[in-house]
């Protein structure tokens, strides 16, 4: 198998479970030098142990920080700078899902969701883009959502935070193109992750019924699209939002 990320330095946020963990495993198989992020080291222990077991030659380090806290992001990237000196790929994956009808949305929920899902993308991209310039370019992949593109009832906050990710992606793609830094987004549909497992049975079935391909997506389906955008296979692709949703209609 051709390794698509050989020696590429990669930071994946929210790598402890779901799409982040699947991406970390896939990237390890493709020879990436991995820096995995989560709020705390403990939540990454299982993923790191699996990677070290399955790919003993891989370089996989943990950099724990809260992406929603600008000071923590600053400290996290200083640590990354000391360890790696440069960066080739950033996957802005960390995020939270907290649904509520608009009448029941609290200010705290709005702040927490936007801080985790949107502001974090700005904070991390800000530092990552400077590290990428040291190696002559790079690729930033932001995790949006089908909800950020078409909306859904009960998801005004989540959808808004994921729509913001698209706006950030399109603007950064234009700003950073001259520095050979590509910025793209992935917009997953209904994907089997710990986040979607929280849904009530009735809502789960409703979502399933809306997928043209008739089945829920896997975290590896999304990880494969992230791999494409991270690798030189997409060397001339920037400012795009790639839907990974099996033809889902909301």
């Amino acid at each position: 198998m051709e390794k698509l990320l050989s020696k590429k330095k990669v930071l994946i946020t929210g790598a402890g479970s779901g799409i982040g963990a699947a991406t970390a495993r896939l990237f390890a198989a493709h020879g990436a030098e991995l820096y995995l992020n989560a709020r705390d080291e403990l939540s990454l222990a299982e993923v790191v142990a699996q990677i070290q077991h399955d790919f003993p030659e891989s370089n996989c380090e943990v950099i724990a920080f809260d992406v929603s806290d600008p000071d923590a992001v600053k400290a996290g990237f200083q640590t990354l700078f000391k360890k790696a000196k440069s960066l080739d790929v950033l996957v802005n994956n960390a995020g939270i899902l907290d649904d509520a009808l608009i009448g029941m949305v609290s200010a705290k929920q709005v702040e927490r969701t936007f801080a985790s899902n949107s502001f974090s993308v700005l904070y991390c991209s800000q530092y990552a883009s400077r590290l990428m310039q040291r190696s002559g370019g790079g690729s930033i992949i932001n995790l949006s959502s089908i909800i950020g593109r078409v909306g859904n009832q009960g998801q005004a906050v989540y959808g808004g935070s994921k729509a913001a990710v698209i706006g950030i992606t399109l603007s950064l793609a234009k700003e950073l193109a001259a520095a050979q830094i590509r910025v793209n987004a992935v917009a997953p549909g209904f994907i089997e992750t710990p986040m979607t497992e929280q849904l009530p049975a009735e809502k789960y079935q409703q979502r399933l019924d809306s997928i043209a391909m008739g089945h829920i997506g896997k975290a590896t389906d999304v990880a494969n699209s992230i791999l494409f955008l991270a690798s030189d296979m997409s060397a001339y692709v920037t400012g795009q939002v790639l839907g990974v949703d099996g033809g889902m209609l909301i």
Binding site: K74, K85, R130, L131, Q133, R134
Partner: peptide, 15 residues
């Protein structure tokens, strides 16, 4: 300028 300073002094500046 920031990129050049960071590269020449091998530092990473805070925003």
């Amino acid at each position: 300028l920031v990129a050049e300073i960071e590269s020449q002094y091998d530092i990473m500046l805070d925003t």
